Computed example of a mutant assay.
Amino acid sequence: MRRLGNAAIAAVTAVALCSGAWLVGSGAVTHTPPQPSAAEGHADTRADAGPGRSAPPAATALPPSPPDRIRIPSIRVNAPLMGLALTPTGSLDVPPAAKKNLAGWYEAGTTPGERGTAIVAGHVDNADGPAVFYRLGALKRGAAIEVDRRDGAVAVFAVDAVEVYAAKDFPDEKVYGAAARPELRVITCGGDYSRSTGYQGNVVVFAHLTGSGR
């Protein structure tokens, strides 16, 4: 399968996931999703970051296995995962907007828990209201993300940072670049909101594998 270029992924997550149809239809502009604070960003996320902010050590990589479900207990996410392939134009497809509690993973890339950077994406809302990653911007560093895999293992990740980027400034290499350890990116819409164009950017969660179970 073809690998998806960074620019193509960025274009899809900034546009296809980000219409804000519910906000437009309901007039609920005051109820836009939570956005990460600067305190949850990449500054001081090293192991020596200081009291209460040190990053858990990375775990040994797992063998490749497709994921079936993602859970983020602190923001009440418990959703099945579907495989996301490429559209005829070469960009990443997205989960059906009508299925609000559904996320997707880039199945031609790294599987969650495997060495490298795995990608999960989902809608922030749909025409009926909040969707699977509506509260993603409220995540805190250190929060746990659990991914059920088809081989029976549960890959457990710790959040390293939660950041928001304007679409025009999306850092492709930082988000999608290769990693020497098992890492995970969880992406949805965020940033400024306009009725005419929808969300103006993306919320991105950076996490690394800290353990596994069954």
Rank of each mutant, 00 (worst) to 15 (best):
Ile72Ser: 00
Gly142Arg: 11
Leu86Asn: 09
Ala98Gly: 08
Ile119Phe: 08
Tyr106Lys: 06
Lys100Cys: 10
Val120Cys: 05
Phe157Glu: 08
Pro112His: 02
Gly83Leu: 00
Asp128Ala: 12
Pro96Val: 05
Val162Ser: 04
Leu92Asp: 01
Thr117Gly: 06
Leu136Arg: 04
Gly142Asn: 04
Gly113Lys: 08
Ala121Thr: 14
Gly116Asp: 04
Val156Leu: 13
Asp160Val: 02
Ala79Gln: 12
Ala85Phe: 13
Pro130Leu: 00
Leu102Gly: 14
Val154Phe: 04
Pro95Gln: 01
Ala85Gly: 11
Val120Asn: 10
Lys140Ile: 00
Pro130Met: 05
Glu146Val: 00
Phe157Gly: 00
Arg149Leu: 02
Pro88Val: 13
Ala131Asn: 06
Pro96Gln: 05
Asp151Lys: 08
Arg149Gly: 09
Val154Leu: 06
Pro112Ala: 07
Ile119Asp: 10
Val124Thr: 14
Val132Lys: 01
Ser74Glu: 13
Leu81His: 09
Val132Thr: 06
Ala108Phe: 10
Ala85Glu: 12
Gly113Gln: 11
Tyr106Leu: 14
Asn101Cys: 01
Leu86Ala: 15
Ala108Leu: 07
Ala79Pro: 11
Asp160Gln: 08
Asn101Lys: 15
Leu92Pro: 11
Ile70Asp: 01
Arg115Glu: 13
Val120Met: 09
Val120Glu: 01
Phe157Arg: 12
Pro73Asp: 14
Ala118Arg: 08
Asn101Gln: 13
Tyr134Ala: 02
Val159Ile: 11
